[in-house]
Simulated scan of single mutants.
Amino acid sequence: MRPTLLGALTALLAALLATPPATAAPPRIESRGVVFDVSNINETSVPCTSDGQQYHLRGRLVGPTKDLDGVSGALRVNVLVHDLGAGGWFWNLRSHPAYDYATRLAAQGETTLVLDRLGYGASRLADGNATCLGAQANMLHQVVQHLTSGRYDYTSSRFGATPAAAHVVTHGLGIGAAIAQVEAGTFDDVDGLVLMSWTDRGATSLATRAAARHSRDCVGTDYAPRPSMRELFFSSASGAVRRAVVHRQDDDPCGDVGSLSPLVLGSNLEAREVDAPVLLLYGGKDKVNRASAREDQAASYSTRVTTRTFPGAGYALPLEKQAGQVRAAVLRWLR
């Protein structure tokens, strides 16, 4: 009997050891419309003029349901700041789920705010000359303050109160990254910066020519069509993703276009004032920023800086074939 009992116990132990551990179910994810009341003012180092009026900024809070319901404890919100020619859709490309940055981060437990800056998408502005990039940084600051206090609203009353953020990290691409940098250097109210495809020290000649053409498009009008993203944004993205992006391109408020040079100056001035940790991400085949400027950009901060370059990727990192690697690097850094 004893050998039989011993054999049974050995078999049972082997079966238990072979059984894979239970894994946690993926979080339930939701996307809810939100609105922020902001003043279109400029109190930054970027010399440009705005109309000082009150506006609604609209966007979407994307994350686990428990976070959006405010029952998960200390909440981190990642604020996604889009580039020129884009809108919140850039970070939330739901037609191509593999490249939906906001939803993919939510699947890993992160909550994001996908914002339409003033003049874009659901935050359309009647007069595109009424705002500027310094004001965009100031309005981003107001959004951060509203997030930390919980003083903003869901667009649907059925969701109840909005959650307050214990921590805010801003993510920006291109001009969106510059806006986030100016905001952080001026107001010192965020816990981290993820800056993609940005340097205030080395635009390529191709990017400089495109910016000059864009400025000429604003002569005598208040909105200008963005120079083709096909030319500047991509290196490895699929044809389907490129077509989806070009189809969604937003016109740019000419107040933003006219304040590009002042923004670069302000970004340069504010770099040393940034206290939050910085993650700099670049594509190895970026057509907008010179590769030689990346080290200078990293050296411009007095805080902790992490730099990562993705070989083969272009400027639009969240939409390139390397998008999964980009998100993985961001998640490692956040954690």
Rank of each mutant, 00 (worst) to 15 (best):
Y120K: 06
S123N: 11
A74W: 11
V143N: 00
V114L: 02
V114K: 10
A106P: 04
Y120M: 04
P97F: 01
G121L: 01
Q108V: 13
M139K: 05
N129G: 13
G109S: 07
A102E: 08
Q136D: 14
S72K: 10
G128Q: 07
E110D: 12
V81I: 09
L113E: 03
N78Q: 11
E110Q: 15
M139G: 11
L93V: 13
G70D: 06
L105S: 01
G87S: 15
A135L: 02
N92T: 09
H82G: 06
V114I: 02
L125D: 01
A130I: 06
P97G: 07
Y120T: 13
Q136E: 15
L118V: 04
Y99S: 15
G134Q: 04
C132E: 01
Q108F: 08
P97A: 03
V79E: 00
D100W: 04
L125A: 13
H96P: 09
L75R: 02
N138W: 14
T103Y: 07
S72V: 02
C132T: 03
G87A: 12
H141A: 14
A130F: 00
V114C: 09
D83A: 12
G85R: 02
V71N: 11
G109D: 02
Q142N: 00
V143E: 02
D116M: 01
V71R: 07
W91H: 05
H141W: 09
G88W: 01
G121N: 07
L118E: 08
L105Y: 00
R104G: 12
Y99C: 12
N78I: 14
F90D: 07
Y120E: 09
T112R: 06
T131H: 04
P97H: 08
Y120D: 06
A137C: 05
L133W: 03
A98T: 15
S123D: 02
R124Q: 15
T103C: 09
L75M: 05
W91P: 05
L125R: 09
T131D: 00
G88E: 01
Q108N: 15
L125Y: 02
V114N: 02
G85H: 10
R104M: 10
P97T: 06
D127K: 13
Q145Y: 10
L118G: 08
G134V: 05
D100V: 02
V144T: 12
T131M: 08
V71P: 08
T103M: 05
A86Y: 11
S95C: 13
L125H: 06
H141M: 11
W91I: 03
L133I: 05
L80R: 06
A122P: 07
N78C: 14
A107Q: 14
G87M: 05
A106T: 03
